[in-house]
Amino acid sequence: MGLRMIEEGLLTTVQDLGRKGYQSLGFSVNGPMDQLAMRLANIILGNDQNEAVLEMSFLGPSISFESDMIIALTGADMSPRIDDVPVSLGKPLAVKTGQTLQLRTSKSGLYSYLAVKGGLDIPEVLNSKSTSLTAQVGGYNGRKLQTGDFIPIKKSYSYVGRIPWQLDSTLFAYLRSEKPIIRFLEGKQYKSFSSQSLDNFTSKQWKISTKSNRMGYRLIGAELLVNDQKELITEATAFGTIQVPPNGQPIVLMADRQPTGGYPKIGQVIQADLPKLSQLRPTQAFHFQKSSIEEALTELKITENTISRLKVAIASKWKEWENAYC
């Protein structure tokens, strides 16, 4: 029972919600770039939100199903087709042994997620199934998936009947924002930056450099300078920390960041805007806007309430489905 990689795509990795509790020993957290889309892929299927999924970047893979199963796709739209028939994002899809999922270059966003009902059968390393590409630990033998790899799954579902629900596409509106705004909190060294730099940070537009990856998004825009170039004492960094190396070009630290760093932090992207930032493409200009802890928490609570509501609603739908067909 499982999935076979027919074509590997650009970068496909196994991710759960991340390796927590080992940062103090130097291990990165890892986990999905777009946590919202990843969690929703699991929620659609009635899975635990922490269930491991495949994260597929920009140019998607082709995958054949070596057993009957139910899957869901969320996040970037890679024009998914099953045996050449277009299929929708954000809903349970029943697939049969021998069928093939084909994905292309994403039309919007960068990261797409494939969850399997019941979950992928991947061993945990240090309490997590997430892949650490740098430490070569976790996920599928600590590496990205390659053509020919077989990923076992925990449960097979031979489909009977209809699975009629689909997530409202407005949930994924952040993937298509026209003039994206990324909100941030003041970083610990915010006040060390020159007033001109702080002004430029919010007034000028920014783009993500193509030299970006799961560790960090390098930004192209105005030069940001600190008033006093003294070396900072190494301290913790988080997903969304905007740090500025001496060359003045900021880097936003992403899912594969190191637990600590020594560059001054101008800001911290609010948690609720991380999915939007992760999915921004290098060609797309965006702006930073200052936020507050209160606003950030309110936004986070709105997202979490939506997720909780969906979880309850979908769980009851699966109950009905199981009673009818299992």
Partner: peptide, 18 residues
């Protein structure tokens, strides 16, 4: 509480704010 990350002169405590 999620985890605590020590550095030279700081300890960073991660927690679930929800």
């Amino acid at each position: 509480f999620i985890e605590a990350v020590p550095a030279y002169t700081t300890l960073t405590v991660y927690y679930d704010p929800i």
